[in-house]
Design a binder for these strands. Structure first.
Length: 429
DNA sequence: CGAGATTCATGTGAAGTATACCTTTAGGCTTAA
DNA sequence: AAGCCTAAAGGTATACTTCACATGAATCTCGTA
């Protein structure tokens, strides 16, 4: 619950930040006026949370069969028998995480009713500073058990010992859900998973079952055979939604979130079409609807119309990218900033060497200690992984081997990024 | 002319280092018997 | 003597550096037709 509040708060801040245009005209009205207007206006939100990215609805349309299978697989947990490890995969926004959270909620509900000592732990392995290394992952799990674990300093073995202790403290079954498990394995290898699956043989009181979630369909094939067979004792594939299904889902959510008649004809269809274009990613569709609603609210409009959806589309992309950049360390931001400036200055392709030179100059001006080229090379790789830039290793024959780097974000968005970074640093190139 | 060698710029793996943090331990000080 | 506090010692994870080797196609070289 707490994380949701933070999330939402951050979102609104992000939206506000990118929509600075409005501030000038707002200043003409007094703050009192604005607050008064806000309170007197008929808010069309009944329940904002229904559009939040981590909202778990009671009903998940078009997923009944998959939910049933999932429930069947996990049901033994209610009798403290270890269910099969489960591997869930499918594209982003196909309801994997949602379905699992839903099933976990229900499982917990039944477990507490039956007084079963079932513990479910959900972790997203992609969240930096949370669960992206072996140490952090286990530390995070221990925190779920109410243990206070330092961010560094303890040997990883010690964490494993503590973890086992927690498990063995009573007869229980632990269901460990690892979201974006491919990210974890990419960074730390699959030994962790092997250790987890092996844990059961050492445990006397407790048992642990693992559920892995991945957007990468090929991920399971790249695992070592021993891990592969134990992780995917059961597999569930989530196919992408089609436009009609997305519309259904949006209507359900809209009915929860808004008052009747606060949406214009065609708004739902437009949001759905937008998402369907993006491999049927429902999350995007819901976010789009949410941002459109927030824009409409700010305008003081009576209903959400198609224009709001159009504007929201731009906002959403900005929100996502700026959120990512905001979370990056200064050195990464400096690297990105250099890339953007260089890309603007010339139309010829950019190479690692050019970027490093530019980066060093920038560091000088910022009085920032420059990192080595080795590290910057890794940072460029990270930016590529984040989808902000595209960096492809190419060989230029006699003229060496390097990465060819380009940005494929809209000009407008790149402008916003530059504004953000310059504002953050109080600096202008 | 074409096969093989060379070359360049930097990708990439491995090992080393600095930093920030942790626990343990020894020594010194205070307190109470 | 027991209890408590403090600082040093010894240990770890992480982010970064240093070192060294790997890469791969354009270009060069040299043998052959």
């Amino acid at each position: 619950m707490k994380s949701f509040i933070n999330n939402n708060h951050k979102r609104r801040k992000g939206l506000f930040h990118v929509e600075q245009k409005g501030i000038g005209e707002m200043e003409q009205r007094s703050v009192d006026d604005i607050f008064d207007a806000f309170l007197s206006q008929d808010p069309f939100f009944m329940n904002r949370t229904a559009l939040a990215s981590n909202y778990v609805p009671d009903k998940i349309p078009h997923r009944q069969d998959l939910l049933a299978k999932m429930a069947q697989i996990l049901a033994p947990a209610l009798r403290l028998n270890r269910p099969s490890n489960l591997f869930v995969y499918g594209n982003t926004g196909t309801g994997k995480t949602l379905s699992l959270r839903h099933t976990m909620d229900k499982l917990n509900e039944h477990a507490s009713r039956a007084d079963t000592t079932l513990k479910t732990i959900y972790l997203n392995c992609k969240l930096k500073k949370t669960a992206d290394t072996e140490y952090r992952l286990i530390a995070q799990i221990l925190r779920e058990f109410g243990q206070d674990v330092p961010i560094t300093g303890l040997p990883t073995d010690e964490l494993y010992r503590l973890f086992e202790q927690c498990l063995e403290s009573r007869r229980q079954l632990v269901l460990l859900v690892l979201d974006e498990i491919d990210q974890l394995v990419k960074k730390c290898g699959d030994d962790i998973l092997y250790t987890f699956t092996r844990l059961n043989t050492d445990l006397k009181n407790a048992q642990i079952a693992i559920v892995g979630i991945s957007n990468d369909v090929t991920f399971i094939n790249n695992l070592s055979p021993r891990v592969k067979s134990s992780l995917s004792e059961e597999e569930l594939f989530f196919p992408s939604y089609n436009a009609i299904q997305i519309q259904d889902i949006l209507r359900d959510r809209a009915a929860l979130a808004f008052r009747k008649d606060s949406i214009d004809e065609g708004v739902i269809e437009k949001c759905a079409a937008f998402a369907a274009r993006d491999h049927g990613d429902v999350r995007r569709a819901i976010e789009l609807l949410r941002v459109a609603a927030e824009l409409a609210e700010r305008d003081g409009a009576a209903r959400i119309n198609l224009g709001h959806v159009d504007n929201a589309e731009g906002c959403l992309e900005r929100e996502r990218i700026i959120d990512i950049i905001e979370a990056q360390p200064k050195q990464t931001q400096a690297t990105l900033y250099t890339i953007i400036l260089l890309a603007r200055a010339s139309s010829s392709p950019l190479f690692t060497g050019d970027i490093y030179d530019g980066y060093k100059q920038l560091c000088e001006r910022l009085a920032l200690r420059p990192l080595t080229q080795r590290r910057v090379s890794d940072i460029i790789g990270e930016l590529d992984m984040l989808g902000i830039i595209s960096a492809k290793v190419t060989s230029k024959g006699r003229y060496g081997r390097t990465r060819e780097i380009s940005i494929h974000l809209s000009k407008d968005l790149v402008g916003k990024i530059v504004v953000y970074i310059e504002k953050e640093w109080g600096f202008c190139a």
